Amino acid sequence: MLCFKNADLVKNLSLLDRAFHYGDGCFSTARMHDNTFELKARHFARLAFAAKRLLLNVDLDLIEQSVRRIQQQHNPMNGTLKIMISRGEGNRGYALPDHPADIYVIFYPQTITDFQFETISSGVLNTAMGLSMPQLVGIKSLNRLEQVLLKKEAQDKAWLEALVTDVQGGIVEGVSSNCFIRINNTWITPELRYNGVHGVMRAEILSRMQKQQIVCEQRYVDMGEISTFQSLFFCNALNPMKAVTDLNALPLDVQPCFELFQTLQLNQMSEYA
């Protein structure tokens, strides 16, 4: 593992960093495949959007500089990048410091291959997600306590991924993924109006569906509709599709997921990066 702070290699972090004290910042997790930064434009756009919402003064060029330095040690570059933007060091208290934000780029080298179609067994978690402050909806902030607690329940039930609802009974997403649902032969993805993360893979899939003229509704999905689910899959930047074979022991049809995987060529991301 390598960690760069503002394009400089570091081995120690400051205890005064507000990311440590308050989760004050945002992040994105990306895949590097043979030196290709997959979905790069979408990751940068999401980070820029989050930085604006969080009032972070940030220079995203530092990400490119960090990646070039990593490539000096890992070429070709294969693995996972975690890009974290922190407001940086500050005094005790919530008041914002008046200096540029810090960018951390952490690289986890690993063997990377083309994406494969995957299937999993899943279910609906009992723990519900709260409603977010409007300014924070869609942002992948450094505060992930909800996901930590949700992941614990999913692990206890031996689910690699699980469906999450909110306190109003709406279906939101997976613990660490967005989701697409098939009802009445139509694809739907929850609209994420009050919570959830605007995932880069979700955006990529929606774009490819539009190009292929495949209808996908973005709307509120009530948990009462679960009995009408025909198909379901989860997606994130590290895996474009985990099709669900059964949800709470209710069998689902994975064939529409497989056909969509092939039609959208989700095994490849480099040509769209």
Results as ranks from 00 to 15, higher is better:
184 N>P: 07
104 Y>R: 02
198 H>K: 11
54 L>N: 02
105 V>K: 08
114 D>F: 00
204 E>D: 13
162 A>Q: 07
181 I>E: 09
25 G>P: 04
155 Q>G: 13
195 N>C: 11
28 S>D: 11
49 F>C: 13
156 D>T: 12
244 V>F: 08
26 C>M: 04
178 N>F: 01
103 I>R: 01
267 N>Q: 11
57 N>D: 15
151 K>I: 05
7 A>T: 02
260 L>M: 09
162 A>Y: 03
21 H>K: 10
228 T>R: 15
197 V>S: 03
189 T>V: 03
92 R>M: 10
269 M>C: 10
22 Y>I: 02
80 T>Q: 13
246 D>M: 13
19 A>K: 06
139 I>N: 06
133 M>P: 11
197 V>Q: 05
198 H>P: 00
55 L>H: 12
140 K>V: 01
51 A>S: 07
36 T>H: 15
265 Q>G: 06
111 T>E: 12
257 C>A: 06
123 G>D: 05
48 A>W: 06
76 P>C: 08
135 Q>M: 11
164 V>Q: 01
194 Y>S: 05
234 F>R: 02
66 S>Q: 07
212 Q>I: 06
250 L>G: 12
224 G>M: 10
54 L>Q: 01
67 V>C: 12
255 Q>P: 04
117 F>E: 01
218 Q>A: 05
209 M>D: 02
9 L>V: 06
112 I>N: 05
215 V>Q: 15
25 G>M: 01
9 L>D: 01
80 T>A: 09
221 V>I: 10
273 A>C: 12
247 L>E: 04
239 N>V: 10
2 L>S: 13
73 Q>R: 13
114 D>H: 09
128 A>N: 10
251 P>N: 09
259 E>D: 15
58 V>R: 07
30 A>L: 05
230 Q>E: 15
98 D>A: 14
246 D>W: 11
174 G>D: 04
147 Q>Y: 03
152 K>A: 10
27 F>E: 00
269 M>W: 09
126 N>Q: 14
94 Y>T: 02
172 V>W: 07
156 D>S: 13
174 G>T: 02
218 Q>C: 11
168 Q>D: 14
121 S>F: 11
137 V>E: 04
197 V>R: 00
258 F>L: 15
163 L>R: 03
175 V>T: 13
174 G>N: 01
111 T>I: 12
180 F>L: 01
58 V>P: 07
151 K>E: 12
99 H>C: 10
166 D>T: 03
264 L>A: 08
44 F>M: 14
269 M>Q: 14
50 A>Y: 05
264 L>P: 05
56 L>T: 03
109 P>T: 03
152 K>F: 07
123 G>P: 08
271 E>R: 13
98 D>E: 15
232 L>Q: 07
119 T>H: 10
134 P>K: 03
194 Y>T: 08
144 R>E: 03
195 N>E: 01
127 T>N: 10
122 S>I: 03
46 R>L: 04
165 T>P: 08
137 V>A: 00
216 C>P: 07
14 S>G: 05
176 S>T: 15
170 G>D: 11
1 M>P: 13
